[in-house]
Design a protein around this nucleic acid. Structure first.
Length: 576
DNA sequence: GCCGTTTTCGGCCCGACTGTTTTCAGTCG
């Protein structure tokens, strides 16, 4: 049984959006959003919670409890069903367009009958928006651009949504039937930042029951194909999942084939041909005799081609096969290499869980250190005052006694202003153990301004990590424009780490920039930027992104012991 | 709708920015 948390988060988020477009009190909308985030961010499955435990989740009160109970008992909430009836189905998707909030969405609905993104595109094409009072040509142009941006990611879904679905599918199948092996494959296994279709591969000698179990899953909305070796379904959320069943004897070859990438596979087949062999999803064979050389495991197949096993994240044919042949393929950083997390939030600012819960979750991962970096005062909406920060520092010191094996460090996520300045003053900043600084506004400055802005921030002796350096949001916001090589140069010169942010809608630095940074000797920090205990699990996505950029443990600040991290900070401060 | 060292009501969500407007509404972080 999959966790109920994600389902409830989705349900309450939808509820919040429907309330917003129906003109409900903004605080009420916010209460639903907060409850959704808090439940989704809860590390344990709420299905197993009693009422007291549910009420202990931040932002969940009696009202929310009743709804959670109704959902867990009946699979639905009547009040939400009624709200869905009352509001056109396409209104929610309109809210995904940046620059179009609940008010404008309702405005175009009321004035132009727009009830979906397709309707909006038609209205934009006909220049109808500029005729509506309160909107103008500029708004129309901006929305046109933002819709196009959204469409560029198309029907692809973010990594974590794909992973959640894939894990649930695998759980459903393994609960129903015995299989010899099962794995997701394709771009999800390679951990691409967005995923088109999900591929699930099963090794079994008896495909029939596997197919039956797959097509009978409760999350199936539509069976697209139901065959003997391949079936496809569409989930209720609209994701297509392809299932393939292969004999266990071909498992390794099939897993390579279906994991891809296509370019990696083509290169492997060329390599096979050079050796008088033939590679397919069924195995590696002698070209002439057709006798099998290897097929059962990925390792065997790669070894028979004189190659090491490649982490799926590195299978993009961007030089990995040549590098392996030359013995220069780096050993990429792994989740196990990470000793701590340098960027996390609590409910003192925009996190959803109290300090104690976040620290508990970090300790449960076995971290050697954990840095709390709540937002600083310049972020008007959420940033903490000096008094709050000092108070938090005392709480951390007290909490430290409970965790002898994990060093708790006090930091902050500073805001990088237009000219590269940050919050507070040097004296106050000197009181922190480590500081992250990030761009949170003014995303469309010129390349020159942005480059200068980032470099100025890095020259500050109290900026030790640049958080989500390109400030992009996948599918929603383009990265800021900068001279990345100049930024890398400054990072090396000033001893500043660049973050690989693990949030599934950020993954920033992106894989290709990681690779450029690593080539230029930049130190990275793989941080979850957690806002809830559950977010700590996102570390796998950041590590995958770093692997895709060929980063080694040696390139990563938080793969080092705490003494080295503190020495890194001290060294930068000493240069000032 | 949640919350409480200001505790069962009245705050919570502030400031920058954009675009549309002549003084402000909507959106975003």
């Amino acid at each position: 049984m999959p966790r109920a948390n994600e389902e409830l988060e989705e349900l309450l988020s939808e509820w919040a959006e429907l309330l917003a477009v129906s003109g409900a009190d903004a605080f009420r909308v916010r209460a639903y959003e907060k409850a959704a985030r808090a439940i989704g961010g809860e590390a344990e499955d709420v299905r197993a919670f009693d009422d007291r435990a549910i009420l202990a989740i931040p932002s969940v009160g009696k009202s929310m409890l009743a709804r959670v109970r109704e959902y867990l008992d009946t699979g639905t909430v009547q009040e939400l069903e009624d709200l869905r009836e009352a509001i056109p189905g396409g209104m929610r998707e309109l809210l995904r367009i940046p620059g179009l909030g609940p008010k404008k969405a309702m405005l175009v609905h009321r004035e132009l009958g727009v009830a979906s993104i397709a309707d909006l595109q038609t209205a934009i094409a006909g220049q109808k928006l500029r005729g509506v009072k309160g909107l103008g040509a500029k708004t129309e142009e901006n929305l046109a651009r933002n819709v196009a941006n959204l469409r560029a990611t198309g029907d692809r879904i973010l990594l974590d949504a794909a992973m959640t679905t894939a894990e649930a599918v695998i759980a459903s199948i393994t609960e129903a039937v015995d299989v010899e092996a099962i794995s997701f494959a394709g771009s999800l296994r390679r951990m691409r930042e967005t995923i088109g279709d999900l591929d699930v591969l099963v090794a079994s000698e008896d495909a029939g029951p596997v197919m039956e179990a797959f097509c009978a899953m409760p999350r199936v909305a539509e069976v697209i194909a139901h065959g003997t070796t391949k079936s496809s379904i569409r989930t209720r959320k609209g994701f297509q999942v392809d299932l393939r069943v292969v004999p266990a004897d071909s498992w390794g070859a099939a897993l390579i084939y279906f994991t891809g990438s296509k370019e990696h596979n083509i290169a492997l087949r060329h390599r096979a041909i050079e050796r008088g062999l033939k590679l397919s999803e069924w195995g590696l064979f002698e070209a002439e005799s057709g006798s099998s050389i290897a097929a059962r495991t990925e390792e065997e197949v790669y070894a028979a081609l004189d190659l090491p096993w490649f982490p799926p994240t590195m299978r993009e044919n961007t030089g990995e096969i040549e590098a392996a042949g030359a013995g220069t393929l780096p050993e990429p950083v792994t989740v196990e290499d990470l000793r701590g997390d340098l960027h996390s939030h609590t409910d003192m600012t925009d996190g959803v869980a109290p300090l104690e819960r976040m620290v508990e979750a970090a300790a449960a991962r076995g971290y050697e250190y954990y840095v709390i970096t709540d937002h600083a005062e310049d972020l008007a909406m959420t940033g903490a005052s000096r008094e709050q920060m000092l108070d938090q520092r005392k709480k951390i010191a007290r909490l430290q006694k409970k965790y002898p094996a994990m060093r708790l460090l006090h930091g902050s996520e500073l805001n990088i202003g237009k000219d590269g300045g940050v919050d507070y003053d040097p004296e106050f900043l000197a009181g922190y153990d480590l500081l992250v600084a990030s761009v949170h506004s003014l995303f469309r400055l010129s390349r020159e301004e942005t480059t200068a802005r980032l470099i100025a921030a890095m020259e500050n002796p109290n900026v030790h990590v640049v958080g989500h350096p390109m400030a992009r949001l996948i599918g929603r916001r383009e990265p800021i424009d900068c001279d990345f090589d100049a930024v890398c140069g400054a990072a090396v010169r000033t001893g500043t780490a660049l973050e690989v942010n693990c949030f599934p809608d950020r993954l920033d630095l992106r894989d290709d920039l990681v690779r450029r940074a690593v080539e230029r000797g930049v130190t990275l920090a793989i941080d979850t930027d957690s806002h809830a205990p559950r977010d700590l699990e996102n570390v796998r996505y950041g590590v995958a992104t770093a692997q895709r950029g060929w980063a080694r443990a040696a390139d990563v600040l938080n793969a080092r012991p705490v003494e080295d991290v503190l020495a890194h900070v001290a060294a930068k401060r000493a240069r000032a």
